[in-house]
Design a binder for these strands. Sequence first.
DNA 1: CTGAAAGCGCTTACAG
DNA 2: CTGAAAGCGCTTACAG
Lengths: 340, 340
Amino acid sequence: MANTIYDIANAAGVSIATVSRVFNKKGRVKNETRRKVLAVADELGYHPQAFAQGLARKKKNSIMMFVPIMSNHFFMEVLGSIQDKLTDQNFELSIVHITPDEDVFTQVEYQLKRQWADGYLFVSLHFSPSQWEVFKKFDVPISVIDDYNHLFDSVSVDNEKGSFMATEYFIKNGCRRIAHLSAHPDSIPVQERLKGYKRALLEYNIGFDTSLVKRGDNMSRDGFTESSGYQGMKKILELDPLPEACVCSSDIKAIGAMKAMRESGRHIPMISYDNLTIAEYVGLSTVHQPIYKMGVKATESLIHKIENPSSKPKKTVYQPKLVIRDSSEINEINLDSKIV
Amino acid sequence: MANTIYDIANAAGVSIATVSRVFNKKGRVKNETRRKVLAVADELGYHPQAFAQGLARKKKNSIMMFVPIMSNHFFMEVLGSIQDKLTDQNFELSIVHITPDEDVFTQVEYQLKRQWADGYLFVSLHFSPSQWEVFKKFDVPISVIDDYNHLFDSVSVDNEKGSFMATEYFIKNGCRRIAHLSAHPDSIPVQERLKGYKRALLEYNIGFDTSLVKRGDNMSRDGFTESSGYQGMKKILELDPLPEACVCSSDIKAIGAMKAMRESGRHIPMISYDNLTIAEYVGLSTVHQPIYKMGVKATESLIHKIENPSSKPKKTVYQPKLVIRDSSEINEINLDSKIV
DNA sequence: CTGAAAGCGCTTACAG
DNA sequence: CTGAAAGCGCTTACAG
């Protein structure tokens, strides 16, 4: 069952060029000939090999996605949307896990050199300007999700603003002592969310207090895990006096945090980040990111770039949205400042 | 920046054979020559093209994974483990979403014909014996996760037993009127879990009551969604008298179900299925499936098969384990039969 | 240790 | 409408 185009050509009594034309649906082929070829191919279970086609055409019909973190819910939802978009287009999707253990730049560069794909999707990957320049030199379509660079198409969300909105919400509801449950300090989105939190405090003349910013000790997956949220919230709950509210950097962390609250019997209002599907079901108030749309958009622009190599880079920034559910409900008991 | 082996050979003043040897680390090359080639390659940003290598070697160093459902938590955890395993091995991972809208068999067959990969991972895909026979004819390494067939390596979990254990747990704790929150009736795991539920009832002389088996109306992703669990639990909570307990077919559904309980103010003990990471944090009693292990095991055996094509198919069945947390706590008020 | 040459399985002008 | 031939960018015996 491993036939080549030669076997089919022989069996059908035609040349390989004709077989090729039949499968490529380009060039004129007599109907009778076509049927004959197709019949033989079907019987022998033949289809052109992807690798041979890729080499001959200099086009692989394949896109490659780089992700720093597998089995992360954000990534999972992005993946779903990309795959939905790709299925129609007849592109293959390869996923490469960029591990933090080795040099991130080198890993990506290696893949670009090998030319596995026609285009590349960078998810939540951050590089220095000079590194981006190097990627540019490869002269290959690249789309960036969850980061921005002027050399490439990018799709992102205004993290700073989302976090600002969450913090402002609590302030407007009378809270002044607001904790921030953060994640890995080196992560760009984490930094932006911290920045938004700080800016809100500043705008409302509330002093920034470092001791109100906590993170878990478990820093795997940049600290975006249930366990990290659990650990971080434990620290927050030990604070004295207890903060009046908490702005959390991700839904998954918030789920860990909720467990910490349940266990300790103490509860503070919380708004998290992402709006994963699950957030609605556990009653999480959160900052909505249009993850599905982001994946679709990035995939579309990547394919567009593959088909129009000279198109200019386009930046798309989505606006976050505050979604209020149960978890942010303000408990008067905690609101010392308001009672005064 | 698109150099070929010829460019490097020219620039280094050697033949392409030598360049090839340097990159393949096979065959003797004088140290000085090697250094020269490497220097030139580095300067020109050269690395052999994956597709040309694949064709020449008749080996792609790539494995392809077929999944019926993207953005499903089970799949996400499997994916994480496969990727972890693959990274060491220097294999590329391609993911193909098999959509239920078209013929599943045809989609898979098409990919096998194209020979994109050296081996294939079938995740939660079910075929008839004659269809499996056809796949066998392709004479290509295949590993099956979450299903079983004697022609191929397979890794699965005893679904029937897991569901039996959950049901038995409630029975032993005095429940007799036990609901089952099920999913898509055509899904094999769903059927097995229903079977385990029924067998437990039978063994303890409890009549099977169809009206106690409910599912949501939303059947996307085989009904393994929060919304489907939410809908199904609503129906269960309308039952009169209220069931004493509920055996649920997945953690994600259970999270939807918990919302339904909270909203209605009625609560029944529940045990779900999977033991996703999140289950621990929302306090879900559940049947543990060693998802991570399954992915690793399947990947290992696939690679083993790629390297030893004549090895015999091996079947691995993992045993489920009951993990008791809060959600199954038995509320005496509901236990009419026990009070009597 | 190194090179010339055939071959991997296709596509695609170019002729006819 | 169809075929002969070159070419895609590598690897790998085979000689030397």
